[in-house]
Design a protein around this nucleic acid. Sequence first.
DNA 1: TGTCAACACGCAAACGTTTTCGTTGCGTAT
DNA 2: ATACGCAACGAAAACGTTTGCGTGTTGACA
Lengths: 357, 357
Amino acid sequence: MRRKVTLKQIAKELDVSISTVSRALNNSKEIGEETRQKIQAFAKFYNYKPNNIALSLKNRKTKTIGILIPEIVHHFFSTVIRGIEIVANQRGYNVIVGLSNESFSKEVINMEMLANGSIDGFILSISKETLLHQDYHHFKETINQGIPIVMFDRVVNEIDCDKVIVDDYKGSYNAVKKLISNGCKNIALITTMDYVSVGKLRTQGYLQALEDNKIHPKSSLILKLDDSLALEEHLDILEGEIEEFFNRNSQIDAIFAVNELYAVTAMKVARKLEYNIPEDIQVIGFTDGVLSKHARPSLTTVSQHGQKIGEQAAHLLIDRLLLDDEEIESENIDLEIDANFKTIVIETDLIERDSTK
Amino acid sequence: MRRKVTLKQIAKELDVSISTVSRALNNSKEIGEETRQKIQAFAKFYNYKPNNIALSLKNRKTKTIGILIPEIVHHFFSTVIRGIEIVANQRGYNVIVGLSNESFSKEVINMEMLANGSIDGFILSISKETLLHQDYHHFKETINQGIPIVMFDRVVNEIDCDKVIVDDYKGSYNAVKKLISNGCKNIALITTMDYVSVGKLRTQGYLQALEDNKIHPKSSLILKLDDSLALEEHLDILEGEIEEFFNRNSQIDAIFAVNELYAVTAMKVARKLEYNIPEDIQVIGFTDGVLSKHARPSLTTVSQHGQKIGEQAAHLLIDRLLLDDEEIESENIDLEIDANFKTIVIETDLIERDSTK
DNA sequence: TGTCAACACGCAAACGTTTTCGTTGCGTAT
DNA sequence: ATACGCAACGAAAACGTTTGCGTGTTGACA
């Protein structure tokens, strides 16, 4: 077992000083050609690579970004991570992942853990519990410590930072508009509780699309489901809820669901009740995941472009990190002033498949 | 913006030495009760938290583990990550994720990047390209530098390290046995090219199950597909291949597929060709993902328990890291001797759903 | 021959910790 | 009064880098 070689060891071996070795390896022209060659050859032979931790300590930056998301076994979130990772890697950053599991305390713990020097900035999506409690002190403190945050998808106005969001409103607006132009009159909405911001926006888009087309929204056609039903183990309960919903509202001719699972479950129930899709009932879901592509019939969805979201978020964060560097170098003190936070909106696409006409 | 407070700042402010502050905060009894209280109160007020990077440098361990996987938008891999993250967090570790995207060079780059001090050990699954080239020098070098590796799922005998694998052989053996006991005579296998070890093992299990039941395997009933077909964009090609396969072999009464996608695609094609499932053709897939649960009919699968794999892998790695620590403290030099690598086999389960009788 | 660049390199500080080894001051036993 | 032990704290090294500054050795030039 041969541990990694350090500058000190090289220096001792070649009988020069540590600084000489460092400069030689960094191709400083302060070092004579001969010694430089010798040192570089030696270093190459022993496969010298500078120690990242030491560099991090010295430079006060780690070149890694922290990702904090509620769940990783989830098509959307993992797609975002992929986008982040690609850009991060391109630009010389690593990613360290923390999972909140939708829990407030885990989110706080994870954040504090990583904020103590482990990362240069965060990219995160807020956990449901945090959104419910509306307690955002950990975000504020982190930002106050000079650690930039980029939020995506589940964001919140109270926090001043860069954001990347999906146009949930327009996405569902267009989806519902599509259903209307396909001749649907009684369009049902299957959604979640309101405290998740994206759910609220998607509901608003639904309502607005109806109104703009002179259709009076009926509250009976809106099914609000508890989040816990989205868990795999409660799938049958979810089906039951939706089935009752259908039975209460036999006039339904279209369904817009705020996520993929609700949509495919609705399709499953509809077929069980002997509705034909898309002839009797047309269905559109939000979030284009693996289920939508392979459902039967394949599901028309509002695609969120998760990877692009991740890429944009990573660019935003890294841009800001580099900007901060420059400002520190130029001893520019008006850091507070030019904060200039951006919110990037990623447009959704309606991917038409077989669940709509 | 208030940057994080350091020991030095506390020391200066309270007019004591850095060492006193450090000891006071660590509750050393070398420090007088009074000063200790004072320092702790001050530290608490300014929310002092030790800098992780400095600790890492001092302790020569980072308390983070590197995960290196081919792909993250993948039910199995993300499930494994979740398992790793849970255990890692419990035991005080962070996880940093690198994606090889099935590429050899990206795997090497990522590994070298992280091996320079950023992590204490690796948990990884080998990329297809690496398996194809059979070039494992980067694993060997990493291990040689004293950085332990735990491999999962896609492992390789050439490398001596801890491993967590699925019993691919027995899993597919039992699946095929089930099909046979359900009365199937002409069981087709849809698999990948051989160089992915798990694919090979699953094929072997298939063959052995047939032989043990006096069924002569026919090569015409084995469809080997190129991996690239598994990509979303080539879905129609995949369907075409499978459709031709069906047409060549009209006697097929069961299908065993080595992954979820092949299985559901086969079901889709079978239905298109007006076979009934499970009456005419029964189907079993490997890898229990989201597709299997929601396919129509729902797919009987061999479940791999990805989360458990991740948890076991994390335990193996962390156990070894702690073991190494002890050995260093006791200056035990016979590190090489008691390597004692384990291979944990996670048994699969056959989850019976509606695609089998 | 003396002066002064230019060159090539070493010293030491700094990043933020922990920890070993002192160093005080003071009370107590001899 | 001397020695000794102990409590309470400080100085400094170490982890592995980078970098500003100092220094010695050249060579050229006046």
